[in-house]
Simulated assay, not measured.
Amino acid sequence: MALIHPTALVDAGAELDASVSVGPYCVIGPKVRIGAGSRIASHVVIEGDTTIGRDNLIYQFCSLGAAPQDKKYGGEPTRLEIGDRNTIREFCSLNLGTVQDAGVTRLGNDNWILAYVHIAHDCQVGSNTIFSNNATLAGHVHVGDWVIMSGFAAVHQFCKIGEHAFVGMNASLSQDVPPFILAAGIPIAARGLNIEGLKRRGFAADEIAALRSAYKLIYKSGLTLEEARTALAEQQAGLQGKAAAHLVSLRDFLDNASRGIVR
């Protein structure tokens, strides 16, 4: 049996690994599945069709798997999926998806989700991200791996944030943030590469140099975005290895940016 506090209400239909611990006054619904080693603190509500992986740490007063905050939602069967080794701090809320999108809200692995974060319906969040206190995602937002969201950053629905990007404190984001970019200020704008983050993750000098050149093409050259994309393709042709792969990621993101990019 899982380690369940006697005051917790765990539905008989829930599937909890025997090593899961559930603290006082939690409520866990019938369609919830929780993997080995995960720990649920007190006063946590987990409902809906929610899957939580291994070795997660979920702090008190979180709400996971509640109905999406979307007037179009009519009780359709949708899901919330949380991966492995995530830390989700106090008062966070992650909602189910909607049938107007993929029908699932996802949080990957090894994420650090701090207090009062909201991840709305149909958001797709990668792995190794950090969401500081009160960061908020509206519906349908996509966030790549290794992104850092600073405190009180708010993201408009359908925006995309590319891998290794950094979004500054109090940012109000209504356009896409390309990979590797530091976006900050009021109003928000691109402020350069996320150099410190790239160095901490072991990016080599040639990789950073290639990304610096790419940044200049997009933001400093006076080219239109379409002209910059063509110039990036030419730059990529002269690169090899990881440096070339980063340019591919950047170009793919620009090709699929749906709300324009932060400039």
Results as ranks from 00 to 15, higher is better:
A244M: 07
E234Y: 04
V262T: 08
Q157P: 01
G23M: 04
N134F: 15
G260N: 04
D101R: 00
E196I: 11
G23N: 04
I46Y: 07
A135I: 05
R251H: 09
G238Q: 13
K199A: 05
K199H: 12
T129A: 06
S249G: 10
S150G: 07
V125I: 08
L247F: 09
A214H: 02
K220I: 12
R200N: 10
A165I: 00
K31R: 07
I148D: 09
D49L: 08
W146F: 15
A243D: 04
P30E: 05
F91Q: 05
F253T: 07
N194A: 07
G23E: 14
A214I: 11
R259N: 06
S93E: 14
Q60S: 13
L137H: 01
G241N: 07
H164K: 02
N56H: 10
T105Y: 04
E163G: 03
G168C: 05
F158M: 03
A67S: 12
A138Y: 03
G260I: 08
D84W: 08
G53Q: 03
H142Y: 09
T50H: 01
D145F: 04
Y59E: 11
V44Y: 08
G74Q: 10
R85W: 08
G192F: 05
L114E: 02
P77M: 05
S63L: 10
L137F: 12
H121D: 01
R191K: 07
A138E: 04
A120C: 09
V248I: 13
T51A: 11
E226P: 03
K220L: 14
A205K: 07
N95D: 13
S127K: 00
G222E: 08
M149G: 04
L3C: 02
S258L: 13
A120K: 01
G103Y: 00
M169T: 06
R54V: 14
T224S: 13
A14W: 14
G97T: 09
G48Y: 04
A209E: 13
A41Y: 14
F91A: 06
L9G: 02
N95R: 00
A36T: 09
G35C: 03
F180K: 01
S21G: 02
V143R: 00
A210H: 04
R251S: 06
Q100I: 00
G126P: 00
S172V: 13
R33E: 15
S150E: 12
A209R: 09
F152N: 05
S93T: 13
L114F: 15
V10A: 03
T136V: 10
N170T: 07
L173C: 11
A257D: 11
S221Y: 05
A214S: 08
A228R: 02
G74D: 14
